[in-house]
Design a protein around this nucleic acid. Structure first.
Lengths: 238, 238, 238, 238
DNA sequence: CATGAATGAGGGTTCATTCAT
DNA sequence: CATGAATGAACCCTCATTCAT
């Protein structure tokens, strides 16, 4: 119990049920995993709609549709489920956006694709935007997205001379900062359809890409975002 | 009661006490105003150290050094004191940074000066940075700084052709987003002395200023920031 | 707060209100002390009727007739109020029994008087007996009664040769053990009027007093027990 | 189900399985009885270490090493398992102490042997002492020890003129009270090797045996206590 | 029967709010 | 107005109990 049983929200991996455990145990474990998933989905919706508050376990279980005590069969504290949820969100973003990003080879194109796609995602799924805005910088910086994927593209862009900036961490802030504010914006007012691309262009420029190149990269056709039906972003499914 | 009696934290202006009230009334009003100021300072410190939480009145009054019931003589709700405090912080920033900004006439220089100064302020006063980071986008967008001063410079920069961006609101996000992330960064790690200027440069570039010009503007000597001793940012004084 | 403000249950002592504190503070402190007394009385009744359980704060406040939150203005934990209550009970016993005991000079007479009086008290106030039985040895050994008064008489009895036993601690057990069982008995069945004296006689014999002497000491007329009307043992008075 | 299947902890007797049931049923019944024994042993350890609390079933099953739900296959309530356990403890004491007591014919010697042996047992097995102290008078008075065996010796002592006391119930309290306090004492401090005998002597004196006789009886050599390896008092064996 | 995940009643605890002084 | 003790709603958390397997 309390071990890390979750990988993303889609339950995509099959745990290869060991033949040695009896059927009862297997069934119990399956049920437990499904309940855990419910809880994380509930936490996602609770955070998105109420922000991070010290008193949320009640809300989480209500959103998840499970009994209050059940929470403690899976998590010890509020921070624990918050962290798990932020990780799950990060994994989910990658699951959705990565197929598009990996079609681009130029670091500038990859960053532009990532930035514009994620903003489009926020427009399509306000709950996602709310989660990030309410969670604050912590929600953005948790997970491998901000710690591995984006830094990788920054590194490639600087090495290849595509970006003229030299401070890697500053570069990360120049990407995440505008995206966070964009999320805030899409929640409070309607934005034009070119907004995600204009934002991506500006981000590239801040990294030292020339206006003309930035525009070219930012307005490429990156393809359509596909959201799996089992996604955490999809409306509640008990 | 509950009228807007606060303007900044310095108690610099005297509100023109009516001659008709007697001395006792005058003394009472003075005491009330001082208590109110204590409360806002307490709120500032409470927010900075504990984040925005739904349950903070106890903490605010403790930080302010007044009794719990006193809170309700000045504010009705938590949101009220939060809003007042955010406004006071905004006014305070202007009081400190504006003397430097108004020495610059070029919109790019003004933006660069504002951005770099405010980041320097966050470095010097982590409590200030914490307040903004914990308060989130709301803390940044409250007050006349984000609603009047910066938009004014953006407008001037676009009109004069200094900025090539055309979306005014996007421009605001491109300034505030990186600043917010910068605040987060200065709280978690040490930054180089040129960090505020590099950030300002990147911001100008995102607005469409060329690399060379952006660098020139961002690395001007804007003069030294002076923090009044009665500032809300200064260490607690009951 | 949480300082030791209680001395017995009768509020007998006057704290000599300092002239330096203002009236408001004085009134507040008075009210606080009265509430604290209510809580200890409530705790006494709660222990007596339900035994020591891990979940009693609710019961204590209900018995005390105060709000649940009020408990935490006076005590931090259940153990704290239990200990205070046991101390208060010990003080109360001394307040009631000591006037009779101090009329006896012979150690054997003093022990006999104490034992028989305390059993009579338990017969008259079953709530008191219940408190002790439910609290177990801890309830008996807390307070100065078991740690100072009785040991003093044991010492005197051994020194003077009245008792032939030499192990002081064993002697204490030989007194407290039968008394504890007697409390248990008076709660479950009717006892004869000579029961307290017969018990006292047997206790003296166990300490090494001869049958004849023991009987003489145990059946002396020790006078009538007087219970103050403000006693914690008296029925609930809000 | 819920019938009284337990007699002592040693599983010494076989309940005469009906010949008509097939082997599978027999195996099932065996397993059930073993589980029940595990539960009572678990209850014993749980009570000893945590005292009698209203919320202990979790602890009992954990100590027993069985699943939580299993409890309800054997007992309905907490009181039920507590009573069963107290009875089992009583039976166990008799099983251990009786072989020594029955070697004595004089009632005074029998009482002295029982008292000193049981205190020696408490010294050797603190878990046993804890169980009794935590269980309080109820733990002492449950079982046939306090209701049959000891009263039988009291009766014999009074009839034969060995004891001068005439109140049978008082006599029982004079035996059990000191024993209970002695259990409390051996848990909190080290006692001398003659302590059990001194206690027994004092008890005899309280019953009206003269000092000289009491000493003679209490310091007889009663032989060595033998604890069966399958005893509930022995260290946990799953 | 044994198992253990889920349940939810019930008691613990905090803290915004009131109010007598 | 300032004070701070009292209040009680609302949430946290545990743990006896159920039940599908």
């Amino acid at each position: 119990m309390f071990s890390d049983k979750t990988a993303g929200m889609g339950e995509a991996y099959s745990p290869g049920s060991p033949r040695s455990v009896d059927h009862r145990t297997q069934v119990g474990a399956d049920r437990s995993r499904r309940t855990r998933t419910k809880l994380i989905r509930g936490a996602f919706r609770a955070f998105a709609s109420h922000g991070v508050d010290a008193r949320m376990i009640d809300l989480v279980t209500r959103e998840a549709g499970v009994a209050r005590g059940t929470f403690y069969n899976h998590f010890r504290t509020f921070e624990e489920v918050f962290h798990e949820t932020a990780k799950a969100v990060s994994i989910e973003i990658i699951r959705i956006v990565d197929p598009l990003v990996r079609q681009q080879s130029d670091p500038a194109a990859r960053v532009a694709c990532g930035v514009s796609s994620v903003v489009k995602l926020a427009i399509a799924y306000p709950t996602f935007a709310q989660f990030v805005v309410r969670g604050g910088p912590s929600a953005v910086t948790a997970g491998s997205l901000a710690s591995e994927i984006v830094p990788g593209d920054i590194e490639a862009g600087i090495s290849s001379g595509r970006f003229s900036i030299s401070d890697r961490k500053l570069a990360l802030d120049l990407i995440l900062g505008p995206v966070l504010m964009a999320f805030h914006k899409v929640l409070t007012e309607k934005v034009s359809s070119s907004y995600p691309n204009l934002l991506a262009q500006a981000v590239l420029q801040s990294l030292g890409v020339s206006k003309a190149s930035a525009q070219k990269f930012a307005f490429r056709d990156f393809g359509k975002i596909e959201i799996p039906s089992d996604s955490i972003f999809a409306k509640a499914s008990s």
